[in-house]
Design a protein around this nucleic acid. Structure first.
Lengths: 213, 213, 213, 213
DNA sequence: GATTAACCGAGACGGTACGTCACGTCTTTAA
DNA sequence: TTAAAGACGTGACGTACCGTCTCGGTTAATC
């Protein structure tokens, strides 16, 4: 449950049956259309970008994807689950590159983070997911999964720093991660300031010295 | 409740006409009922606390406040606007106490912040407001107002620190505010860790040394 | 309760207090504005003509008449009462002219009737009154009054015919009146055919021979 | 009930798609529930009979018919359209029986008409429909339809009379129909007299002699 | 003149129904 | 068995209008 196995697993939580089709049980009846999956996710991303999550209705997604609503609900249990899946599919894999020093790793990671956040692509999706997750245990769980996924590279950076003796070994890694990531989220969702590389640099200058050994 | 009510209402952008009543206003026609304002906001807070934003319907708010729906919509243009107003009225005035040093001021402020956040009173409201604000300019504006209001005491603390020479004068105050507040928001909405005083202390230890002169 | 006394009385049922002011009780306090009465009735007629009774709201009547809603309700107890009053004020007195023969009297009366009906002035008001009267005793009563008022000249024509020996004395006058007037109402409200003088003539040719002595 | 239901529905202009089903229609998707149609119309008739058109709310109709409001509005565009449809379905097919002579046919038809009118079943509905139709083209059209439907048997009676030489061939049939039916409508809606068989007989005596050859 | 009672405008209020919309489910026929 | 189409129950939304009520202010007749 630690490594990439868990990761992979959680990432297919919702897509209930596509994989393994060929391996076991030739599955009588008409097989699910793979095109449909893509069309639905793609339409979801498009629409969420255009009118926001809230303005996006399942009927319109179905229409845009040239798919029936039932087909969507056969794959994802709710609007939120669909959007979460779309969100995941949009991020792609996060690469944990080791550039040799904590500072340069942080610069790379936070730079990447701010870039992603600035692109408005899924800009209004997160708030909605947070909102709904507050009342929906299953979505909460999926969302936690997603968050953990996003935090992992940063955790790795700090762990490597500790191993190399660059970083104090008495810090709580989770807290430091919060300190680095929190301000970005806050600005994005509420405070509304600039999210460019300069901000990333400022955060590093503000926090890093106190975690260095 | 009259004095603070009026004060609070000043922040309620949506309450289109109440403010400044005392200064100059022959104000023709039947005046808006102050009782209604209070009853509505109070019912909103109650319900949002009990069943969350999503589970709260305008009809029930009206019923609980012994008020007609029209009376609510005469004051606030939407459910969101109402809840935002309720949120504001719930905070009440934030007191900017000067305890003599930046560190103690920060401890007080962040301690208070974490306390407020832990109390689930309006726990699920904020995400929804953020969500809707993403596509509703007016609400966005009101929300910004609210955020600015919340940031003000922290800004004051830092400014006093600069005056006193405790804090470096080459920092961007806004950035530091983000660094302090962001992690709380992030934990609350996404990361989901502890928000107790220990976390506040950790953030101070992590950031404060680098802003001190 | 038989003669013109009743008639006069019933016709002022709604206008509760204007008349007789001078005779008794000089009525302390500010007297009702006569202009308001006129403006309201006039606005009512205008609007009923433009958008129909149903599309006409009391707020708009008040606005158009430059009068407050309370001023309207002080005079008439409901929308329907107002419209009925407007309807009456629009008809004016019906003249019962004696042209010497039943046929010529009928031609005059029905010609006038068709003319009035064709003018769309109050074309949509009657149906609504009928509608509401079905559930409102007071309005029903006022409407009956109005109907009786409209029938009277025709009754007089037939009574004169009987006196003169032109008309059989074994007919029920009420039935004959219904036979003459009914088709106009029916066409106007439901069947929707022409209402010109030709139709009037056709009705006379169809019915009169059988009532002649 | 299936056969006559379909037949009745043909007249229901508003029921946008049911008719012609049998001729050609693979009709994809879930078909409209026939039960729902019947339940709605039936509930409408019941309620309109009990509390009148005005007192009848769509929510209650829906509740009584165990159907959602949306399901009603999917079939009829407004309260009025629904009631009109209910009115039609209530009449059922009018039978045009040939009793051999115009007089006996008329006696049968007008007797039936007066019976129907006396039963207060839909007694207050017609005025409202007339009222609304005055400003609603679509409803006007449907109402005209309905009226034409009701007139047809009487027209047939007169045409047979002409063929048989019983009735003059220089009359305008429409005018004669108005002469016969108008008085009933007038009494019902405005004048308010008796509508029993005696009245029917009186109308026949008054008008028929002048249309006989 | 001062009082007083009734009026006036503006507009807020409770109530009730309206018609719309979206979600997620269910029911058909076709592939 | 899945797909497309689309009807369905549920339930909240925001709007409209009615008739009432509450303000501050005005207008005569009475004291």
């Amino acid at each position: 449950m630690t490594a990439s196995a868990a990761m992979t697993l959680t990432f297919v939580t919702e897509a209930r049956q596509n994989e393994l089709v060929s391996i076991e049980s030739p599955r009588r009846g008409r097989p699910r259309s793979v095109d449909a999956d893509e069309a639905i996710l793609s339409a979801t991303l498009e629409l969420a970008g255009e009118v926001g999550f809230r303005g996006m209705s399942m009927d319109v997604v179905a229409e845009r994807a040239k798919v029936s609503k039932a087909t969507i609900y056969r794959r994802w249990s709710s609007k939120e689950a669909l959007v979460l899946a779309a969100l995941r599919s949009a991020i792609g894999p996060l690469d944990d590159v080791d550039l040799g020093s904590v500072r340069s790793d942080l610069e790379a990671y936070l730079g990447d983070l701010s870039t992603r956040m600035q692109s408005g692509k899924m800009r209004d999706v997160l708030p909605h997911l947070i909102d709904v997750a507050a009342h929906d245990a299953q979505l909460r769980c999926s969302l936690d999964d997603y968050v953990a996924h996003r935090r992992r590279p940063l955790i790795a950076i700090l762990e490597r720093g500790i191993e190399r003796g660059e970083v104090r070994d008495d810090i709580e890694i989770g807290v430091v991660v919060d300190a680095f990531v929190g301000p970005f989220i806050y600005r994005k969702l509420l405070a509304g300031g600039d999210l460019g590389p300069k901000f990333a640099q400022q955060m590093i200058d503000l926090i890093l010295p106190n975690v260095e050994a």
